[in-house]
Design a protein around this nucleic acid. Structure first.
Lengths: 235, 235
DNA sequence: GATTGAAGTATTGTTCAACAATCCAACGAG
DNA sequence: CTCGTTGGATTGTTGAACAATACTTCAATC
């Protein structure tokens, strides 16, 4: 109680980027690894192995785990360990319900279109096209994520942005449980471009309508693939 | 690799409530304490003191801290410690932007009203009235939170619910930095009742319109109070 | 007097090692 | 084949130690 005045500094906040702690760096690493599919959904993340692999102590690793649990990328079971989240069909439904709530109103009632936010939408469209031309299908998926992230960004709320980011990361996990992430995103590229065109032309209602159809179609496709995968049981 | 098959059990998930770990229990305690205002916004949470107070080790406490940081209830500064979040006017704007994105569409496009969700709205209204009659002004605020939580619940997404819960917890912090949480919520009680009435009558558009005005008014009131507090500086 | 710089101190960041608690697999009895 | 028991492996939690950093203090200088 003597070394500090116990009060947060009001002025100089966010001047220089607060260098991340070890735990946050580890969490970032694991997050990318999980999203990229380096660890299969449902697989266990061994403390002992990851400690050694990442060169950090168990305590630090566990701090990182807590962060990922809160992002729903991994689940934690007492005395069993942490596992890469294995999304269910119900999760898919919930994820799309959340996306509808976030994306549709963002598109429909973007009162002042927020030039930079709209520009981000356009950039994502271009990114998708470039990735397709290269044959980088995983990149196409990434661009698609960026597109929808940009749509949610029209809301103009940093918290919404962050939430959307997590929703999309989870969605990405869904694609990993299906074995066909190849040309899965391809047909959606043109759809994205159409939505963007409608947006810049100012027809928000039409854009929202297109987006809604998009979401319905995508969800149904995923659910179908999911149920087909759950029923026969590959084991 | 021998004691477990490294795969998460597909069936029996969520059968019995997974008893919370120590870190989660500590986080829950601290969360409530922060929301209830036991620790003033901007105040530091000393590791050493809390360790002793809660009877847990530093490592466990730090795990709990990570959870609260991710919920934005506390901020973490390297080598300085964790502080109860001191919201800024900008935070208030962002919080209300997020609430607009969540609550308005939930009210407006609640296609099938979801009977139990709508019932929760009614219960929050009653709860608020009861708290006012008792003179429990903090309880009135709690009921108000429940009301808006229930509105967001009309979306029917568990993830939206959880996100809304965090948004409201943060909003609660905002009220702590102002010294007048007494009859601040009182005028909003009737507003809530009116919105609920419109909802059960099926006039979603009118309900959304009322809600929008509500949010605009509330935000402006908070921002005004905030700027008045920041300008003169009580120190 | 105000600013700068250099100790010294307090607090956090991270690791390590130990033990308790629990789960899992394998085994054996009925 | 089913059901307990046992043993091994993994996680849950603690405590202490040391390194790294920020804050305070105080003296020196302009």
């Amino acid at each position: 109680m003597t070394a500090t005045d116990d009060r947060i500094g009001r002025p100089n906040r966010r001047l220089l980027p607060p260098l991340p702690s070890q735990a946050e760096r580890v969490a970032e690493l694991l997050r990318e690894a999980v999203i990229d599919g380096d660890h299969p959904p449902g697989g266990r993340l061994s403390e002992e192995r990851l400690c050694e692999e990442l060169g950090v102590s168990r305590n630090t690793l566990r701090e990182a785990f807590r962060l990922l649990v809160r992002e729903r990328l991994v689940v934690h079971q007492m005395h069993r360990g942490v596992f890469v989240t294995l999304p269910t069909a119900e999760d898919v439904r919930d994820l799309f319900a959340a996306r509808r709530s976030l994306e549709l109103p963002a598109v429909q009632r973007a009162a002042d279109p927020a030039p930079e936010a709209l520009e981000a939408v356009g950039r994502a469209v271009e990114e998708g096209g470039a990735a397709r031309d290269t044959g980088d299908w995983w990149g196409v998926g990434t661009a698609n994520m960026h597109f929808h992230q940009a749509l949610a960004g029209l809301s103009g709320s940093a918290r919404i942005d962050e939430f959307m980011s997590r929703i999309l990361a989870e969605t990405r996990l869904v694609f990993h449980v299906m074995d066909a992430p190849r040309e899965f995103h391809a047909p959606y590229l043109d759809w994205n471009r159409r939505i963007h065109t409608l947006l810049v032309s100012g027809d928000r209602t039409a854009a929202a309508s297109e987006l809604e159809t998009y979401l319905d179609t995508s969800e149904e496709q995923l659910i179908t693939a999911f149920l087909a995968r759950e029923a026969p049981g590959p084991a």
